[in-house]
Amino acid sequence: MSSTTETAHAPSGHAHDAHHWHEDPEAHLAHHFDTPQQQFDSGKLGIWLFLVTEILFFSGLFCAYTIYRSYHPEVFVYASKFLDTNMGFINTLVLIFSSLTAAWAVRNAQLNQKKALVINIVLTVACACAFMCIKYVEYSHKAHWGLLPGDAYTFNAPGVESPVTQDHPDPTVGMSRPDNIHIFFGIYFFMTGLHGFHVLAGIIVWLWLLKRAMKGEFNAKYFGPIDYAALYWHIVDLIWIYLFPLLYLIH
């Protein structure tokens, strides 16, 4: 919807031609703000509030996790054995590294380092894509074994061919199998899926900023969008840092 409304923001450039400097500090000032500082502060407060809503959005799921873990501890102990800790660990490293490149990108923008800014955004996007690829491998593995939520859960169900082979032994051999294992996978897929959705949204945002960065739009006077996107990216990272131990590590 924004294309038709560009007029409100775009034309402020030529209005200031009379006192043209190397870079016009007000080139990106929207019409309703008095100063670039006011605009930056508003954006910053806005993104922080948005992050608060994100945390509350996930909080319902963390709450559900806690409650069902207390209802059915044996399900969580049993089912979490099926998660691939190595892949989860690699994904954790990938995301933490991408948080570093995101934070670095903010610094690059503040220091007018256009080339480094572009490189760091590309690295961030690359890490995000790597995360999603690893997630895809994990998901398809679970789907293959029938470790799915609700009715779709078919692991070792009667009439379904057992996925257990010599290469892929059952990690729960010797454990007694509790009822309602699908609940764990319901929570697992919902939480990691919603998180993955946020990673995808982040990729789109970073690609948009990459395009703007390559045009040289960001500089020491105007770097708000990079700052806000990096904050968002940190919260995506942070949520994963909680998901990883809760789902993969605790036994």
């Binding site: 809503t53 994100e54 509350l56 959005f57 996930f58 909080s59 319902g60 799921l61 559900a64 069902y68 209802y71 059915h72 939520p149 609700g150 009715d151 779709a152 009822d179 309602n180 699908h182 609940i183 319901g186 929570i187 919902f190 919603l194």
Partner: peptide, 26 residues
């Protein structure tokens, strides 16, 4: 946001039988 996640859970529960709110599924 908490309403948002609740309604999303309810929609997914209905569509895929997630088992979060359904006593017969635990």
């Amino acid at each position: 946001p908490v309403l948002g996640i609740t309604l999303l859970l309810l929609a997914i529960e209905r569509a895929f039988k997630l088992g979060i709110f359904d006593a017969t599924l635990g």
